[in-house]
Design a protein around this nucleic acid. Sequence first.
DNA 1: CTTCGCTTGTCAATCGGTTGCCAAACGAGC
DNA 2: GCTCGTTTGGCAACCGATTGACAAGCGAAG
Lengths: 343, 343
Amino acid sequence: MTDAAPTGEITGRRRRSGAATIYDIAELAGVNPSTVSRALNQPGRVSAKTEEKIRKAAADLNFHANPMARALPTGRTHTLAVVVADITNPMVFGVIRGAERAASQAGFTLVIAESQESGSLEAGTIDNIAPSVDGIVLATSRLPDEEILRLAQRKTIVTLNREVDGIPSVISDPAPGVSALVAHLADLGHRAIAYLGGPSRSWISGRRWEALMHAARERGVAVFEIGPNSPTLTGGEAAFERAHASGATAVVAYNDLMAIGLMRAAKAAGVSVPDDLSVVGFDDVLGDLLSPSLTSVHADLTGMGTRSVARLLAQLGANGSHEDAGPITTELVIRESTGPSPR
Amino acid sequence: MTDAAPTGEITGRRRRSGAATIYDIAELAGVNPSTVSRALNQPGRVSAKTEEKIRKAAADLNFHANPMARALPTGRTHTLAVVVADITNPMVFGVIRGAERAASQAGFTLVIAESQESGSLEAGTIDNIAPSVDGIVLATSRLPDEEILRLAQRKTIVTLNREVDGIPSVISDPAPGVSALVAHLADLGHRAIAYLGGPSRSWISGRRWEALMHAARERGVAVFEIGPNSPTLTGGEAAFERAHASGATAVVAYNDLMAIGLMRAAKAAGVSVPDDLSVVGFDDVLGDLLSPSLTSVHADLTGMGTRSVARLLAQLGANGSHEDAGPITTELVIRESTGPSPR
DNA sequence: CTTCGCTTGTCAATCGGTTGCCAAACGAGC
DNA sequence: GCTCGTTTGGCAACCGATTGACAAGCGAAG
């Protein structure tokens, strides 16, 4: 009698969690674990019959490869990160949504990290997550260029609305929307436009201002910048005084949040929007909810999220490289906050 | 001559990424790798002198332990997930922000997953991320109770605004806010209140309705429910007709988004808020931005996010268990959308 | 001076996959 | 029937950390 043959005891490999491993599959299918690995990852490497058998066993056991174990030898984690300055900024929601979708479609997991508008915190956050992700989208980075370049040496990086030499980026080109915006305001009789700038570290704020200047010059409209400001409700409120004093009949804010803050301050001061003052935002994330609803330069934020992840995946050599080059376009959405110039 | 001693060639361990490993530290400090591990993770296990030396070496090399490699033997990934039905629901922003903060403070990474309001997709999403996280917060789950119980067997779970037998949860108790709300409306002369319910799968919508009924009974005010509705702007808009036809002079919506939709439809129909109709929301996420601004039952969403992560960590035995028990309270925030009853 | 007991560091196995290398098996062509 | 070339599957090392078991080192007590 073979008392070395146990009745029903543990096979020697202790089960930590309920998850099935390739060893379980191998046993069930009667093959070597390495054969299981090949069958599942390298199509054609094993015979069709064996592969079929293994796939069936995997399905029976509801097998999901442990991402950690897989990441160790390959160095690829199948995880991407989006780093944002401020999670509560509605602009990032759309980006995150698009990124999440593109990532999960490619079998990648998305991690969100917040740097709370602080450059040093951002660097620390990135250091923390870097080892466990394959690539990073810097959505609203406040880091200096050289720091981004340094990071890019260690990790695949894509920037959003930020141009750094040699780093792939996804940019929403403000020109089309701004051009339509200035035309719209000029048609309404406005002759002086104020721009409420965003944070000085924001690359895209500068681009928006440039586009505005350019379009205004072409139309013969005066523009001037007021700023920098905090890209928040409070920032917009705080800037109202100066904007109003400037004599501008239309104010273009760096983003919707600031525009809303401005409208609020205007209301408190008894200034009517749009009768006394026209207000415009950027990003078009909230304009629809307000009353008066907000005219805004719309960008396809979801598309930007999707595309930034696609760029990342392309760099990683992960998927069909349908190099969708070129900047993302913007368009004007006219709502109630813009009206004829009072003058 | 010892030609076995190479001049400056590779030490045998190839460097995959730039990241330093405990082997590098061990070499630099002249100790065994396992000593490095203990020095960094088990305070007191090695002599103060050795620990000091090792910490210095680690700092010199800018060492960050590879989370994957660490997760493999321990089974602990130092990652938590928040699963939400819809990323664009502003209610989840606050939750995510709080959760992110609590997690990163404890040295954990946060993963956000979206189930797009679909129960089956939610289950699939969770299956996907489960192997790589230590615990999961179900923020707005649409899963049936038994499914959640099944998941809880495999993974540590905390629910948010959802009570399932035996599962730890973080609940915002609507009673205090609702009680104040009904008092407020009664004082304004309202005698009939309509409640616009949320999705039928939403546990918290039922709780809010119950609290409303209870408070209304005590005050001798009539209430009735209209629903279920989609918890969105559109859902609120669509419900306006019925709400208005009901003869109620005040409408309480399941959340702010629906309240805003309702106000919009009211405006389009020439019904003035608050003169003809008082409108109230829940969660207090957007009310401040609108005009008229929205009266809402405020819940500390950030606190809920923080607390749900704390619960998770406590269950995982990860941090100081300051069992902050008891539901989260709510309070009424009175703004412009409520006024005297027109009757 | 010896022994005991405690501290401190080392060895080696392990987590769950991946992959280079090699050998067995198999089919085809002579 | 034999040889050759190609599939196909197995063995074992490896990724970077953790950890149980154990031995060396050390001081103190007898």
